Measured scan of single mutants.
Amino acid sequence: KKIKIDLKKGPEGLGFTVVTRDSSIHGPGPIFVKNILPKGAAIKDGRLQSGDRILEVNGRDVTGRTQEELVAMLRSTKQGETASLVIAR
């Protein structure tokens, strides 16, 4: 099931960490939400869960991207702006 979640970045950030699983010589594996932090946009919104697979960030497919690339995409969202995620659960 795909779910679109918009998180408005506040002073505590987006409020979640990510982890890559099953990376191989063929490229990075899928990226999942690792933890929801006690402060930040994710816990206020309440929909994002540990174990959700991140498919898109701000309309860009993240398949084949590294964890570092995904984190850079999320960090490029400025405070007060919205990060738009599509996740699979």
Rank of each mutant, 00 (worst) to 15 (best):
S84G: 10
N58W: 02
V62A: 07
L74S: 03
T66K: 07
V57G: 01
V19M: 15
T63W: 07
K8C: 04
I25H: 11
K78V: 08
D61F: 10
L55D: 13
G15C: 00
I31E: 01
K39N: 12
G40K: 01
S50F: 09
Q79F: 08
V18F: 15
I31N: 14
A88P: 03
D61I: 13
K1P: 15
S50N: 13
G40D: 02
D45I: 01
V57M: 14
G64T: 05
Q67S: 08
T66M: 03
S84T: 11
I87H: 02
V33G: 01
Q67P: 04
G13I: 00
L55E: 12
F32P: 02
Q79R: 08
Q79M: 07
D52E: 01
R75S: 05
E56N: 10
G80W: 06
T17I: 07
G64A: 08
D22C: 09
K8V: 05
M73S: 05
P38D: 14
E68A: 06
I25W: 03
G64I: 09
G27Y: 07
G29P: 06
R89P: 14
Q49E: 12
A42Y: 02
K44E: 07
G15R: 00
L37P: 02
L55S: 04
T63R: 06
I31V: 05
G80C: 09
I36W: 00
K39M: 10
V18E: 01
T63L: 07
A83G: 04
D52S: 01
P28M: 12
F32W: 07
V57R: 01
G46M: 04
F32L: 12
G64S: 09
K9M: 15
L70P: 02
T77K: 07
S24A: 06
L55K: 08
A42F: 02
L48M: 08
K1M: 02
R60P: 01
R89M: 01
R53N: 14
G27F: 07
V18Y: 05
I5L: 07
V33T: 02
S84Q: 09
K44I: 15
S23Y: 05
K4G: 08
P30Q: 04
T63F: 05
G27R: 08
K39D: 13
Q79V: 06
V33E: 01
M73Y: 04
K78N: 13
T77L: 10
P38K: 12
R89V: 00
G27W: 10
I3F: 13
I36N: 02
G27C: 08
G29M: 09
A88W: 12
G40C: 03
T20P: 14
I25K: 09
I5A: 01
R47S: 11
R47G: 10
E56P: 00
K2L: 02
K78L: 09
D52G: 00
A72L: 06
S23T: 08
N35Q: 12
G10I: 15
R47C: 12
R21T: 14
Q49G: 06
A41P: 15
V57C: 11
K2S: 04
K78T: 11
V62Y: 04
L55W: 04
K2C: 03
I25N: 11
L37C: 10
L14D: 00
D6A: 12
G29T: 08
K44F: 09
I5V: 09
A41L: 03
I31Y: 14
V18C: 15
L14E: 01
Q67T: 04
R47E: 10
T20L: 08
D6H: 13
K1A: 04
V86R: 10
I36A: 01
A72W: 05
S84I: 06
L14F: 13
M73F: 07
N35T: 03
V33I: 12
R75G: 10
R75V: 12
